[in-house]
Design a protein around this nucleic acid. Structure first.
Lengths: 190, 190
DNA sequence: TAAACATATGTCACATATGTCACATAAGCA
DNA sequence: TGCTTATGTGACATATGTGACATATGTTTA
């Protein structure tokens, strides 16, 4: 996801002024590189983590997140298990939310790279979740894969509301993985 | 975000000389880490609070985030506005969630001191929210004030599930404030 | 009780790291 | 493209670490 950091981001992480981070880089404590324009600094995540551990500084949890994390919003246990089985074998770390409340908690808690969303859940409206996701500047960056067995019209509505991709149930396992991985790749390259 | 303090800040909080704080860190009484430059010390807020309580030292008020922040989980706009008006006048900072998803997001995002929860919302089940809240070790510390117009049986069920207090609609404004403040006081003294 | 002692804390000066500010300009975004 | 936000820079102000020493506090001993 975020492979490199700016001085401002590092300054926030370390509870220190931006100016200080630049000095650390200048003096070689922290290894970075400069953008061509005016020479804005960038530091690779790897280098930043090495820097933190080298100086025994606290490492922010959000930096330790694994690469492929997916939030599965699904109330049907059987379906959730099926998705979990398939995606786990493909290297995904699965976080399962059974309703909107758990989904919100999980989202704000840990960074995920992808969300799969069941539109038709008793007790909650998938569309309203989708609406909040796309309108939130933070969350709108996370691609949403809508999984649902509802009709074509609703699927198109979801697409219009900002879903990254749509898969009608029942779906092929290989297709699920292909779509999931392509969504993440698009975001990474973006 | 990791909030950290310098030795000078801690010295002021403790009414002690900066030099002394450095010695505390050196001798292991207080856990800290060093910045790369000359080795300026930083102490995580968490560690500082632990240090204060461990040594039975007075804890500065401003570190306890004694603000009155309440999360109002309520889909009825009119009711939400009514609650907001009353509580804001009493010094509360209100965060309003219209459904479970927004509630989850808001909860993990910002620390609140109190949650008011409407049990009867179309599209979501207040009981399942309550269940997640009480079973989560982090969230179970936040008192929940159930506001609902449903029957006595359901209110008792909510109480049994861990609601801090229950208020049947319609309720008296003064009573709302009294209950809200008492819930927060109990938690603070705990 | 008071002296003697060990230990913790305060003081000082100095070198230097870090923070602040204003301004120009790059980077991000729709 | 045009706008907003973030960043780099220099000069300067402020804060911090360190060592050596003074002072305060608590405890033991005669």
């Amino acid at each position: 996801m975020n492979e490199s950091f700016s001085t401002g981001q590092i300054a926030k992480y370390c509870g220190v002024h931006l100016r200080t981070v630049i000095r650390w880089i200048e003096q070689g404590y922290l290894k970075g590189y400069k953008l061509p324009g005016r020479g804005n600094n960038r530091v690779l995540k790897e280098e930043f983590l090495a820097f933190l551990t080298r100086n025994q500084m606290p490492v922010p949890q959000e930096l330790l997140s694994r690469e492929k994390r997916v939030l599965v919003v699904e109330d049907d246990e059987e379906m959730a298990n099926a998705i979990t089985r398939v995606m786990r074998r493909d290297g995904w770390h699965i976080i399962h939310a059974r309703d909107g409340f758990q989904a919100g908690l999980a989202l704000a808690d840990t960074k995920v790279n992808l969300i799969t969303l069941d539109l038709m859940m008793p007790g909650m409206d998938g569309f309203s979740v989708l609406e909040v996701l796309t309108n939130n500047p933070e969350l709108s960056k996370i691609p949403v894969l809508v999984l649902s067995g509802c009709n074509e019209e609703q699927l198109q509505k979801a697409k219009a509301m900002g879903a990254g991709a749509i898969l009608a149930k029942p779906f092929d396992n290989q297709r699920l993985l292909a779509v999931a991985n392509s969504l993440v790749d698009i975001t990474v390259n973006d």
